[in-house]
Write a protein that binds this DNA or RNA. Structure first.
Length: 350
RNA sequence: AACCCCGAGA
């Protein structure tokens, strides 16, 4: 039972839900009954893939089979509702679990605080933190990181910094994530001085910048139209032995595309393959966006073809921009082919 | 063995 559950969870975290489903079916055939661990792992696998209904169906099956949902099960369900901005059912489950005798833990509160922050309900999030303390549940560093991210996303950098001081006073040590949140907040507010000073403080505290830290910094330069320094930052990251991933390349490519430097963007794009990184649909859509802004329908179309050959689906914007360009160039036939492709892919042409 | 925080495009 434990081995199956471990394997199932591994596949779910890998994104191989199909493999997980097969193992789940096989264990039942072999007469091994899934327990609350197995069901919760499977439910999370579905939720990660955006398959809420399938996950909820598993929850029903679980109850039907007489397996009692526990704290983790409730946390997973609450997280799923928060992710979808459905705070009411999330709080209903919070009440339900308490009625059934499950005491919410820090993770439960964190999930709900994160949900409130995502909805920009920062006052409510702070109130909920107060409630958490009243109930005797000790906040974790994650609690503070979530709240700080809420402030940062709302552009309230003053409150974010105040919270940093509050947490330090409370004896919580900021982590690399804490600083990543702050740095991205500053750079989103176009405050590169603030971002730089947070970066400095991070290093002074002995925290090691991660791939995410560098991606945020690269993005800050790229957004400011300084791809030169963004590339410098990338090289500096590599010099510390950190490998960029699709996100890192995504911000670099986006910066170059926005500047209209398609040659530079394609160089970076090609360097991904030499690093054995598979460009994903976001990277392709970014490049298509860039080429369309250069009125280069030929290249955009080529990339759309390449995506399809690799099993990816361009987004509606990529189709729309390319079709418009083709029409402008009088290539109506090609445009119609694309329009048809869109319909087949399930998009409603706008 | 299962639950929470940070980074890219439209």
């Amino acid at each position: 039972l434990v081995s199956y559950t471990t394997l199932i969870d591994g596949h779910c975290k890998n994104g191989s839900l199909e493999e997980a489903r097969q193992l789940f079916g096989r264990m039942i055939e072999l007469g091994i009954s899934p327990n609350e661990f197995t069901y919760t792992a499977m439910m999370n696998g579905c939720f990660r893939k955006g398959l809420r209904n399938e996950g909820m169906q598993l929850y029903d099956e679980m109850k039907f089979a007489g397996v009692v949902p526990n704290l983790y099960t409730y946390n997973s369900l609450i997280a799923e509702y928060c992710k979808g901005f459905n705070l009411n059912p999330a709080f209903q489950l919070f009440d339900e679990m308490r009625q059934r005798g499950f005491a919410p833990n820090a993770v439960t509160y964190n999930i709900l605080i994160g949900g409130l922050c995502r909805q920009r309900k920062l006052k409510d999030a702070e109130k909920f933190l107060a409630k958490m303390r009243r109930e005797g549940v000790v906040p974790s560093i994650v609690t503070f990181n979530l709240l700080m991210n809420g402030f940062c996303k709302s552009g309230e950098m003053g409150n974010a910094v105040k919270l940093l001081d509050r947490m330090k006073d409370g004896g919580f040590s900021p982590t690399a994530v804490t600083y990543n949140v702050l740095i991205s907040g500053f750079s989103r507010s176009a405050d590169l001085v603030g971002a730089a000073s947070a970066f400095k403080e991070m290093k002074m505290r002995g925290l090691v910048p991660t791939k995410v830290t560098y991606t945020i910094l690269i993005g800050a330069f790229a957004r400011g139209g300084d791809s030169e320094r963004a590339l410098e930052m990338y090289r500096s990251m590599e010099s510390y032995g950190l490998q960029g991933d699709a996100y890192t390349f995504g911000v670099l490519i986006h910066g170059l595309c926005t500047e209209g430097n398609m040659k530079g963007a394609m160089d970076v794009f090609r360097s991904m393959t030499s690093k054995r990184l598979k460009p994903n649909n976001v990277i392709y859509d970014t490049l298509i966006f860039g080429y369309c802004h250069q009125d280069n329908a030929f290249r955009a179309l080529k990339l759309i073809r390449e995506m399809r050959e690799n099993g990816m689906v361009p987004n509606i914007g990529s189709y729309g921009m390319t079709i418009r360009l083709l029409c402008k160039e009088g290539k109506c036939k090609e445009a119609e082919v694309l329009l048809n492709e869109m319909r087949v892919a399930g998009f409603l042409p706008n």
